[in-house]
């Protein structure tokens, strides 16, 4: 049985000029990075773009990787930054649309039974409610939830990615889950 090549070894090969080495990194992590981006941004196209930009930025800054953190953490950090940058750009471009969206979300939480059509399945309603609730969270809380639920990163890994203390990560995740719980209870899901 061949030994599994670690990400760090692959990065070392990429740094020595191996053209296929970074492709191996992409193949290993593209799905998880996409899941993270999708959880953060909520749209497939934007998640694709963010994923591509993440690996592009990683390739450009490959020599800056010093091996102090894990490659996965490093990639996740880049992905989170890309997603946050995208969200800020979108917020600057359409401030009014974001407010309208927040109002819609709030209205949905207040009286969901009156707004949603009757034909929508109950399970689908619940999922939609969760989606709205997650995207109604502040960015710093949302990214912790997404990294934990979509990527299944440990608290330590999230702390490394976000460069936060471990307790802060736990506290943010707890706060995020409590807010989601309150929103979903109001929604009735």
């Amino acid at each position: 049985m061949e030994p599994v090549t670690t990400d760090e070894h692959i990065v070392e090969r990429a740094l020595t000029g191996d053209a296929d080495a970074f492709g191996e990194i992409v193949k290993r992590w593209e799905r998880r990075i996409f899941a993270l981006a999708y959880g953060m941004l909520g749209r497939e196209e934007e998640a694709r773009d963010a994923t591509q930009e993440t690996f592009l930025a990683a390739f450009k800054n490959l020599r800056a990787f010093r091996g102090e953190a894990k490659v996965s953490s490093w990639l996740h950090r880049i992905a989170v930054n890309q997603c946050i940058t995208r969200q800020r750009r979108a917020k600057v471009r359409s401030e009014a649309a974001l407010d309208d969206e927040e109002e819609k979300n709030a209205a949905a939480f207040k009286a969901p039974s009156e707004l949603l059509p009757a034909r929508v399945a109950e399970g689908q309603e619940r999922i939609e409610a969760v989606r709205r609730a997650v995207y109604a969270l502040p960015v710093d809380l949302r990214q912790v939830v997404v990294m934990k639920e979509f990527e299944d990163l440990t608290f330590r890994e999230i702390a490394d990615v976000l460069d936060l203390p471990l307790s802060t990560v736990k506290s943010r995740l707890y706060t995020a889950l409590k807010q989601l719980q309150m929103r979903l209870q109001k929604y009735g899901a």
């Binding site: 593209e30 799905r31 996409f34 619940r126 969760v130 979509f150 889950l177």
Partner: peptide, 18 residues
């Protein structure tokens, strides 16, 4: 709440074609 998030996550990842 975690179960609800997991349901949304699973559906989202299944619908995406990545």
């Amino acid at each position: 709440t975690r179960q609800s998030i997991a349901a949304w996550r699973d559906q989202s990842l299944c619908l995406t074609s990545f």
